[in-house]
Amino acid sequence: MKSLEKAQKIIFIALAGIYFTYAAGVLFQEARLCLAQFRTMRGFSQDQKRITLLGDIMGFADTCNKIIPENARVLLLTNLASIPGSEDLKLNYFVYPRKLYWLNLERPFPDTIPDFDEKKYCALQKQGINWIVYMYSAPVALYKIVQLKECRVIASHTLARENGQYVSDM
């Protein structure tokens, strides 16, 4: 019985040893990673850090923030299903206090982009929505910002991705 207890204690100490050996490795690895992050990003603004960490979505959010005024109400047309981790929800966060409204929550738009006529633009403007953001990922890949006034489109900014950068064509 005593030899069993002794064996158990030895196994326990061995397991604790394995635990701390691996943990020391993780600590060292994470400390190195932190140092590398610090060296790479120490001169970055917070926006630059976000672009480094989050990629393309930050470029689009940044463009939206430049073009759309802060108090705007915006209709978001997207083929993304608003699920955890989805980019439309990230856009919602990064463009705040611009308010995004989704048209169809139960079933997001399929890959065909809906047509809007004057009547629909008027209906949107009556609800205080003067901007539309198109955010369509593959296979359509359309990123567009549209401004409405007097029931028609008065400005449109289509964003094309060239050389890994978003550029406005208007």
Binding site: C34, Q37, Q46, P84, L89, Y93, F94
Partner: peptide, 16 residues
């Protein structure tokens, strides 16, 4: 304190 929020839920679930 060095990195801004960049994981899925901290932004879209809590901080929004």
């Amino acid at each position: 304190l060095f990195l801004p929020m960049h994981l899925p839920d901290d932004t879209v679930q809590w901080c929004i």
